[in-house]
Amino acid sequence: MKSTWRFSFPALMLPALLAAGALGASAAEPVKPKVMVITMFGGETKPWLENEKAEIKIPVPGFPKDYPDVACSAEGLCVLTTAMGYANAASTLSALIYSRLFDLKQTYFIIAGIAGVDPSKGTLGSAHWARFAIDGSLRHEIDPRQIPEGWSHGVVALGAKAPGEKAQWGAGTEVYRLNEEFLQRAFALSRETALADNEEAQGYRAHYTQEAAKGKPLVSICDTLSSDSYWHGTMIAESMAKWVALMTDGKGSYCTTQMEDNATLTALRRGADAGLLDFDRIALLRTASNFDREGTDQTPVESLTAKSGGFGPSTTNAYRVASTVAKAIISDWDKWAGGVPAAEAVSAN
């Protein structure tokens, strides 16, 4: 290791390097991140590494081979990449929590990734903070070609006898509600963020008639649906909207769809139950890289395989919106260290 590195790393970060064996030490105190950003693949991580001085790399046993470490800045911002899907998300977060390399008791977690979006709730590049994360897979499902007469779809809650009935049993990970105070602070801090857009995305919006889809990207609060299956199309989407309403007693407003969040939150919930982190310090942001269904002049296949132009704005905006909140927390750490501060105490730095 170059000797100049020793002087560029603050005392806060040196223990983690020692614990990871970077300086040949056998034991050290764990590092204490102020903010831990959770991304799911390299395209989501890239803007963070390009725009933040996250030069301290801490390898974590059990992390995916493609994303083997946590990247941290001197100020206390850290970024990790889980790799896509439930199995990767839960495994990576569990490896982090139980690695003993980090003290996460005061850490704020921001999940910042891309998603599909309901065109009635958002558009390409729009950013949505979630109140609820709902699992779209823990359920019974019968092929539509074999459903009984009178059923509009084949989705049935666990233990129920027909669509629309409440579940009779479950896994306990079907629905997570995020801390309302942190949600509102995150939204207030980031709602005026300048969002990226491009001509390709602007042109693609012409396939849709919904006002939200045709509009410019914005920041809002609406909920996210998790599923390992990358589903697409109006019929499935409408069924999923009913599922979200059922699972949240009508309180959830389904907006984005993605492949990790209930798994990520389950790992974090377990860590919180073990006293290793604070579940009230989690915020969940998803930005729209694509619509979750076809436009009025498209088939679902055409929509699924189209190049919408949404990827670039969505990855950029996930960084812009989430980093606004992360920087506010770090710059006002004295106010945030003890928990989410009241609105009047939050700096808008």
Score class of each variant (00 low, 15 high):
1 M>A: 13
4 T>N: 10
14 L>T: 12
26 S>I: 03
31 V>M: 14
42 G>M: 04
46 K>C: 00
47 P>Q: 06
51 N>I: 02
61 P>F: 01
65 K>R: 10
69 D>M: 06
70 V>H: 04
76 G>T: 06
76 G>R: 10
78 C>E: 07
93 L>K: 10
94 S>K: 07
95 A>F: 07
98 Y>Q: 09
117 V>E: 04
119 P>N: 00
123 T>V: 07
125 G>S: 02
127 A>V: 11
127 A>M: 06
129 W>C: 00
131 R>D: 12
135 D>Q: 10
135 D>Y: 04
139 R>L: 13
141 E>K: 11
146 Q>T: 12
159 G>L: 09
171 A>E: 12
181 E>L: 05
191 R>V: 05
192 E>F: 08
192 E>H: 13
193 T>M: 06
193 T>N: 02
198 N>A: 09
205 R>L: 02
210 Q>I: 00
214 K>F: 00
214 K>T: 10
216 K>M: 05
228 D>C: 01
231 W>T: 13
236 I>C: 00
241 A>C: 04
242 K>R: 15
250 G>Y: 04
252 G>V: 07
255 C>K: 05
260 E>G: 05
262 N>R: 13
263 A>W: 10
268 L>A: 12
274 A>P: 03
283 A>H: 02
284 L>R: 00
285 L>H: 07
287 T>F: 05
288 A>D: 08
288 A>P: 03
289 S>K: 12
292 D>N: 13
292 D>W: 03
297 D>N: 15
307 K>H: 10
312 G>W: 01
319 Y>D: 10
320 R>S: 14
322 A>P: 03
328 A>I: 08
332 D>F: 09
337 A>F: 01
337 A>C: 02
341 P>R: 09
343 A>G: 02
343 A>V: 11
343 A>K: 15
